[in-house]
Structure formats: C-alpha cells, structure tokens
C-alpha cells in the first residue's frame, strides 16, 4: 500500500506548489482577535414590571455568508439570569465555557448553605448566589481587562435578570469594557432599528415598571421582525428568553410570524429589474 500523503489526497507539490506554512502560524506574533470572523447580529432586550425579555436570532454569519443557521446566542446563567451575545461567535463560545465554570463554582459554594432558600418561596434561588448585576460587573471587568491587554473579546453583551434589591436588571458591556444600563437595550443594528421602537414603550424606568409581560414580549417580537426586514445579516429563526423571579423561560426555536413582503413587489430600480 502506498502510504505517501500524496497518494491519500494531499495536493502534489509539483502540481500545486508547496503548502504555504504561514497558515499554520508557527511562531510569529502572539495572536489576538483583531476583527470578528463569524458574527452574530443584534441582541435586543426590554424590561417589564416583573422581569426582562431578551431576544436574538439564531444566525452566525461569515461576512455576508449566512454560515450557521442554528446558533443559540442567549444563555441562561444559574437559571436566574440571561446573557445575550452579539459579535464574534468564537469569543462567545469562549465566554460561555468560562461562564459554565463560574456557574459550577458558584453552585458548589452555595450548595450547603442552611438558609439557602427563603421560607415563603421554595422556588427561590439560593440566597447569595451571583445575581445578574454581579454577573454583569464580573463580565465588565473581564472585557475591560482583555481590552487593556489588547486582546479583546469581540462581543457586545447584554445581561438580564435581577439586582440585589430584587428589581429587574438589564445592562450592557462591550469589547472595550464600556458598561451602561437602560430600560431597553439593543446591540448592533438593533441600536438603530429596534431601540427607537422599544423606547416608545419603555422610555423611562417608570414606563418599564408599568409594562406587562405580554406587552414586552409583543414589542420584542415586533422588533425582531423589523430587524429581519432591514438587517441583511439576520434570520427569521430566533431565541427569546423571559427572566422573572420564577426563573428563566428560554425558547430557542421561534419563527417570525405574520411577515409581510407585499411591499417588495413595488420596489423598483434595483438589480436586473429594468421596468
């Protein structure tokens, strides 16, 4: 049997030239994400009176190529918070692994606590576990540290859940470690397209505190539709998460409903269309 690599499908050097070893990155400078490669688009979220709703579509793009169409970009943390990732998908997966470790450590730490759940509510999470505000703080330190090392994690992240005063919590952190909170938040294209719509319903904290769960979900779904209409790197399959005191309800296979593309026929002047 011929065991030479060329006989097993390797391109022959005399035909194709020698393999360019620079692709193997042996030696060379220390590598860092200098630009995102496989990316997820917008994440949007809005607070309501009993919690937070968050949504992101299931697409991971490679440039303009819709590369992976079943990528989950929302992840629950300790079943009390939700983290949504926009930006680089490999950095998201790194962070997800990291958050898994953190969640396991945290679960062990509070496993044997005698006063773990309050008497009146058996479903309540163990007291003292990292809440969404703590998690956001931690992620912001992580992201800021990486930007200081010139090795950023190329994401914008939304964190939803509750703070230490048990009030709904929603905040963002990006690849530079910039943090902010608002009654509604959106990353990427969502900041231009969805945020103005959500602000109509929750301009202030007081407005958000009046919003019901059904209203909030409806607004978010409407925003996902607008984003699918106008964002070329988006998908009509998406994940939606609702965080309340009872925990996280995450649905990862939602389909955009009641789309209307009737207007498309009336668009003229693009592409090969001549009349």
């Amino acid at each position: 049997m011929d065991h030479r690599p060329q006989a097993w499908g390797r391109p022959r050097d005399d035909v194709y030239g020698a393999y360019d070893a620079s692709y193997l990155q042996s030696g060379g400078p220390k590598t860092a994400t200098q630009s995102p490669i496989v990316t997820g688009t917008s994440v949007i979220a809005i607070k309501f009176k009993d919690g937070v709703v968050m949504a992101a579509d299931n697409l991971a793009s490679y440039g303009s190529l819709a590369r992976f169409t079943d990528v989950k970009r929302l992840r629950p943390f300790l079943s009390t918070s939700v983290v949504g990732f926009g930006g680089d998908v490999s950095d998201m997966q790194f962070l997800t692994r990291h958050l898994n470790e953190l969640a396991i450590d945290e679960a062990y730490e509070h496993e044997s606590s005698p006063t773990s759940s309050s008497e009146d509510d058996p479903n309540a999470p163990p007291a003292g576990q990292l809440n969404a505000a703590n998690l956001h703080k931690y992620l912001s330190k992580l992201m800021y540290r990486r930007r200081n090392d010139f090795d950023p994690l190329w994401n914008q992240i939304l964190v939803a859940g509750f703070d230490s005063a048990s009030a709904p919590f929603l905040a963002s952190v990006d690849l530079r470690g910039t943090t902010f909170t608002s009654p509604s938040l959106a990353t990427g294209f969502g900041a231009m397209l969805a945020q103005p719509i959500m602000r109509r319903y929750a301009a202030t904290e007081a407005d958000a505190a009046r919003l019901t769960r059904e209203e909030a979900v409806k607004v978010v779904k409407e925003c996902m539709k607008v984003l699918f209409y106008r964002d070329a790197r988006s998908l009509d399959r998406y994940s939606i998460a609702v965080v309340t005191k009872d925990g996280v309800e995450l649905s990862e296979d939602e389909q955009l409903e009641r789309q209307s593309w009737a207007f498309a026929e009336r668009i003229k002047g693009y592409g090969t269309q001549t009349v």
Binding site: L130, N134, K137, Y138
Partner: peptide, 12 residues
C-alpha cells in the same frame, strides 16, 4: 467587591 460588586460571602 471590585469584581462582583457585592459583599464577599463570609464563608468564602
């Protein structure tokens, strides 16, 4: 407090 924004659990 700096990394998590909370009181350190006393047991920890």
């Amino acid at each position: 407090r700096l990394t998590y924004g909370r009181n350190m659990p006393v047991r920890t």
